[in-house]
Nucleic acid binder design. Structure first.
Length: 462
RNA sequence: GGCGACAUCGCCAAGUGGUAAGGCAGAGGUCUGCAAAAUCUCCAUCCCCAGUUCGAAUCUGGGUGUCGCCUCCA
């Protein structure tokens, strides 16, 4: 399979470091707020990456950090008149809740930055000892000039950057591009003891420490995150790791594109900021997942109401197909005919090509069509349904299949419904259209759709 | 100013040298009391210009446009 690697700016054949194993790390949330729809994209996408590798038979180890020490958290604590620990605790819980609702599986490891302060200090100390870092008045900086490959990931040459163009130049730094590894304590901030006095770590070290610790290696297979992290975050992570080990932190760097809102960048000043939590109130998790996967992960994607509506309809399509043949659960032992093996191959070929999920989805639509088609024989429709669920599951759909397919209303409701259907049918026989339509319309309002088929009146939950 | 990405039907979106997948929306026919569902049919020459080639949405050059990064934003 091929993966686009930010490091080489090419699609490359994926070769794991250890045969049949994938070690991957994706940057997690900074817990100072509910995460927004833009944060959700990489969470969902790397969940799919993980699933797909497992589907291909790899043993995957997936780690993701939680940044619980950061300026933004401290600021939020001041704003809310709370403590930084309480803020972190609150939003970690919210993060867990929302990702679960989105159907994202928990990574194998999900450590917090605060758990590894000792190891972060050791990393910085090692960098200092080897001449890659220097201390100025209690702050420690990484010296970009000491690491000759600085810029290898982002393609930036440090001398091209306009120092201080957008941020005030820090006069303590030897070079404007030098970044902070350790910050001297300020009043009312959480601090830890260190060789440089009281302080706290900068943002870029935690991911180095956590990834290497939990993936148990200096250099692992895949590192992921949003494109905005390429520079400076990932560049700086890599610089620290490679300065010490002479190897890149990861072999493949994958970056997802941004989400725009109605064509504009999402930002607080434009007030077009949507949290995943809010969107989940309006649309179900699978519609959100479909929205993300309907476009290639590296492309920017526009979020708006009509596209969410379409995504919702599209997902319902899969379910109505499955309902049309009373599909209940997947048969894992099924032997697909050549025709469906071919469909499966199409799906795999699409996914092997740098996770072309949009194309993979078209295979699913194709299967849905086969399932619904009255021209197909029973066996083909069954196989198509089975394969639809198999492939859809790789993309994270159909997690509550049984519940979604169930038409179970409970005893009394079922009886009442069949009484209503009987009354309606009598009304129809008497050509009392007003009454029969009223029953149909009222039931639809309650989410029950009646279908007058040749085999009598059927119904399904909308 | 530096670096980079993208431009395909009303909307979303595949396609990476061989004559434009798919989804949503829409139009018409069949079916239906009417709907829904099902079913059949219809619906683009790919931002512009030039070039390479037997052949280009796909390669090259030049435009135009949109967007991103260059700040501890996914």
């Amino acid at each position: 399979m091929k993966i686009y690697n930010t490091l080489t700016k090419k699609k490359e054949e994926f070769k794991p470091i250890e045969a049949n194993k994938v070690k991957m790390y994706a940057c997690g949330p900074t817990v100072y707020n509910y995460f927004h729809i833009g944060n959700a994209r990489p969470f969902v996408f790397f969940d799919v990456v993980r699933n797909y590798f497992e589907y291909k038979g790899y043993q995957v180890t997936y780690a993701q950090n939680i940044t619980d020490i950061d300026d933004k958290i401290i600021n939020k604590a001041i704003e809310d008149n709370s403590s930084f620990k309480q803020i972190a605790k609150k939003y970690i819980a919210a993060f867990q809740e929302d990702t679960e609702k989105l159907g994202i599986r928990k990574p194998d490891f999900q450590p917090k930055a605060s758990e590894v302060i000792g190891e972060i200090i050791k990393l910085i100390k090692d960098l200092e000892n080897k001449g890659f870092a220097y201390e100025v008045k209690g702050d420690v900086y990484f010296s970009v000039e000491s690491f000759k490959d600085y810029g290898m990931l982002s393609g930036k040459k440090i001398d091209d950057q306009k120092a201080g163009a957008r941020v005030e130049a820090n006069t303590n730094k030897r070079h404007p591009a030098d970044f902070t590894l350790w910050k001297k304590a300020k009043p009312d901030e959480p601090t830890w003891n260190s060789p440089w006095g009281q302080g706290r770590p900068g943002w870029h070290s935690e991911c180095v420490v956590l990834s290497q610790k939990y993936l148990q290696c200096q250099s692992f297979d895949i590192h992921g995150g949003g494109v905005d992290l390429v520079f400076p975050h990932h560049e700086n992570e890599n610089a620290q790791a490679q300065a010490l080990s002479n190897k890149p932190l990861a072999n493949y760097w994958m970056h997802n594109g941004f989400i725009n809102i109605e064509g504009e960048k999402m930002s607080k000043s434009l007030n077009n900021f949507f949290t995943a939590r809010d969107i989940l109130k309006e649309y179900n998790a699978e519609a959100i997942r479909f929205f993300f996967l309907s476009k290639h992960y590296r492309s920017p994607i526009d979020f708006n109401r009509s596209i969410m509506q379409e995504s919702d309809t599209a997902v319902k399509n899969f379910y109505s197909a499955l309902k049309s043949i009373n599909f209940t659960s997947r048969d894992e032992e099924v032997n697909y005919s050549d025709r469906f093996e071919g469909k499966k191959t199409e799906f795999i070929t699409a996914m092997d090509d740098d996770f072309n999920t949009a194309k993979a989805l078209s295979v699913m639509f194709d299967l849905a069509k086969t399932i619904k088609s009255t021209k197909e024989n029973e066996e083909n429709r069954k196989q198509a349904a089975n394969l639809l669920v198999e492939l859809g599951s790789v993309l994270g759909f159909f997690q509550d299949l049984a519940a979604k397919l169930s038409n179970d209303l409970g005893d009394l409701s079922s009886k009442l419904l069949s009484i209503l259907i009987d009354i309606r049918n009598s009304a129809k026989e008497n050509k009392n259209w007003a009454l029969s339509d009223k029953i149909r319309d009222e039931l639809l309002k309650e989410g029950i759709q009646l279908l007058d088929t040749k085999d009598g009146t059927k119904w399904e939950k909308k």
